[in-house]
Structures are given as C-alpha cells and as structure tokens.
Nucleic acid binder design. Structure first.
Length: 213
DNA sequence: ATCCCGAGGG
DNA sequence: CCCTCTGGAT
C-alpha cells in the first residue's frame, strides 16, 4: 500500500467508525493500565468481565496493594496467565505509590519500567489516557499491517515504524482505535470478512475473499 | 487444535 | 530470533 492508499484506507475506517473511542471499556490511566496488563494473550471479553469485580474491590493503587496477590488472583482466574499477572498488578501498583505518588506516569520510559508493562501497553496508555500520538501495535494491528501491506514486517517494531511512515500524523492517534476495531470485526484472525474491507483491492492477503463463505 | 488488544527472558 | 506463561473461546 502506498501512503496515499493508506490515507484512503484509514479515512474509510474513520467514516465507518466515527465513534471508535466509545468502544473502549477503560480510558482513565490506572484502570486502563491494569486492564491492558491483564489483556496479554487473553480476549478482551474475558478481561472486561474479570475487571468488573477487581476494580470494585480495588479502584486505585493503594487498594490494589491492600488486596494483595491472592486477592487479585481470585478475581482474574478466568483469564490466562493469571499467576504472573496478579503479581505484576500488585507490584506495579506498589511502584506507582512509592515512585510516582500513586499516579500513572505519562512517559514511555517510566511506563516500561513498571513490571508487566512493555512497549505495547505503554503505547496504549499514552495514546488513550494521555492523548499522545503513539501507535500501539497489538495483535490486530500487526495482522492488518502484514496482510494489507500497509506496514509489512516480521516484528512489531517494523510494523510500528511502517505505520508511522504511512499514516498521516493527524490521523495517527485515532487510527489506533479504528484499526483495532477493523481487526476485531473485519480483518479477523480466523475468518476475515474481506468483502467488507475498504483495503480489499490493494491488500496482498493471499486468502482474501470477495463474498461470505 | 488454534488463537486471543504481550511481556520477559534466553 | 526463540521460548514460556496460562485459561477460555471457537
């Protein structure tokens, strides 16, 4: 995909989904951070379900530390990797208290220094909670970038760099949400619905289909 | 069987 | 680059 084609594709996604941000379950720094940490290798539905009870018991870092690893674990056993995630959420909350006055930092370096927080999570928090023009490459965006040729690459870093080069700067931040929704509902991992995709013509995905199976 | 809005470590 | 952690959904 050329840069002009990328702009057309992204513009179409924006028009198809003008209110993409409303799809987000959490947009404030702390609950968003915790929710994204929990979302690694888990479906968003399972995370959203588990976090209802978790945030009712522990809506802030101090309450989360008080709840403890076992307390957190009880809430998130319905999602995968719960052992490591429970420890990370408590440790991360403790670090917010001692190093950041109980608040979520708004720099990439500080975020990535937190346990369980990597590049993708840091970028989501910066993009959504702090309104910065970062591009978080999750599994959906990685897949879209590679299939369409919008940002081909074998690593998330390459895809991220490709997106930054091809997507106009003023579209970068909201494009994050449009792309994720496109990946969830159209450019799906299992059975992509290519006949609904605006990038169908320029896409180089070998199995693209022109009509429902 | 395969995948999911990854991170950390080898 | 590779692997492991892990349960639920399809």
């Amino acid at each position: 995909m050329t840069r002009a084609q990328a702009r057309a594709f992204i513009t179409h996604l924006a028009e198809a989904n003008p209110d993409a941000r409303s799809e987000l379950t959490y947009t404030d720094p702390y609950t968003l951070l915790v929710a994204v940490v929990l979302s690694a290798q888990a479906t968003d539905a399972s995370v959203n379900k588990a976090t209802v009870g978790l945030f009712r018991d522990a809506p802030d870092p101090a309450a989360m530390v008080a709840l403890g690893v076992d307390g957190v674990a009880r809430h998130i056993r319905t999602i995968g990797l719960w052992r490591a995630k429970a420890a990370n959420v408590v440790a991360l909350s403790a670090q917010l208290l001692v190093r950041h006055d109980g608040r979520v930092p708004d720099t990439r370096e500080a975020l990535e220094a937190l346990p369980g927080v990597g590049r993708k999570t840091a970028n989501v928090v910066l993009n959504v909670a702090f309104d910065q023009s970062t591009m978080a490459v999750d599994t959906h965006i990685f897949r879209i970038g590679n299939r369409t040729g919008l940002a081909p690459g074998s690593t998330t870093r390459q895809v991220e760099d490709g997106l930054v080069r091809r997507i106009p700067a003023d579209m970068l931040r909201p494009a994050h949400h449009w792309l994720i929704l496109h990946g969830r509902y159209v450019c799906k991992a299992r059975s992509p619905e290519c006949w609904r995709c605006a990038g169908r013509e320029e896409c180089r995905f070998p199995d693209k289909r022109a009509s429902p199976a």
